[in-house]
Amino acid sequence: MPELSAEPEALAGIAGGWIVVAEGIHKTFNRGHADREVRVLRGVDVSVAKGDVLVVIGPSGSGKSTLLRCINFLGPPDEGSVTFLGRTLTGAVPRFRPAERMRYERELRFFRTHIGIVFQHFNLFPHMTAADNVALGPTRALGLSRSQARERSVAELERVGMGEKANAYPSQLSGGQKQRVAIARALAMRPQLMLFDEATSALDPELIGGILEEMKRLAESGMTMIVVTHEMGFAREVGDRVVFMDEGRVVEEGPARSLIDNPQNERTQAFLSAILS
């Protein structure tokens, strides 16, 4: 399993025990278009300690995906900051100062190469084989040689039970197999944090269990994870903490079991009773 290497910045980052701390995150889409403006995140704070699994639940549209995209800066926050392994980044890109811009891009790349994400719709590269999908990041972002990357890629595919399909194209794989390749692709970067955005929502029911099993194994191996899911069984069993989001805010947060079995906030209660019935 990926372990914290002796990189000084990595060690410095976990001084307080936190792998990632997101503070005061605000995100608004279509800013300035008064009629179409949507305030998706309105001051969200979340943090995850090393080795913990944070499960994010909440109704559709509550901003769960947007929050994950703020953490790896695919959709940078408008306000607030994310501290990952001790490095803090905000959404303010120094556009017109070249030196600072370069520094910002470097930090951004640090975040993205050390944070893996698995998407609901897999987002595999359809023109590449499974092995090439997994090897792309290691070669193009980490600078590994082709043969090193290939070796790593095959090893990661084998770990998720996809060794046999290394030379298959995504179009030749089932949904569950695609998601396994997508997990291998993220893990091949040796991330310090994994984000899962409804990784099982697009799967046929009989394939969901296998992917959840894979995620559970990853958690047990010590990976730090943020998991957006509607699978309450998984949340209760594998999650350490749960946050319930609604309308762009964290409404309730607590240890997984107690929050799910015994929610305090009435919106959490309503959501859980609707989803569990």
Binding site: N72, L74, R109, R112, T113, I115, G116, I117, F119, N123, L124, F125, L136, G137, R140, A141, L142, R185, M189
Partner: peptide, 8 residues
């Protein structure tokens, strides 16, 4: 997004 998320 998948490519950028890999740090490319």
């Amino acid at each position: 997004e998948a490519a950028l998320a890999l740090g490319l």
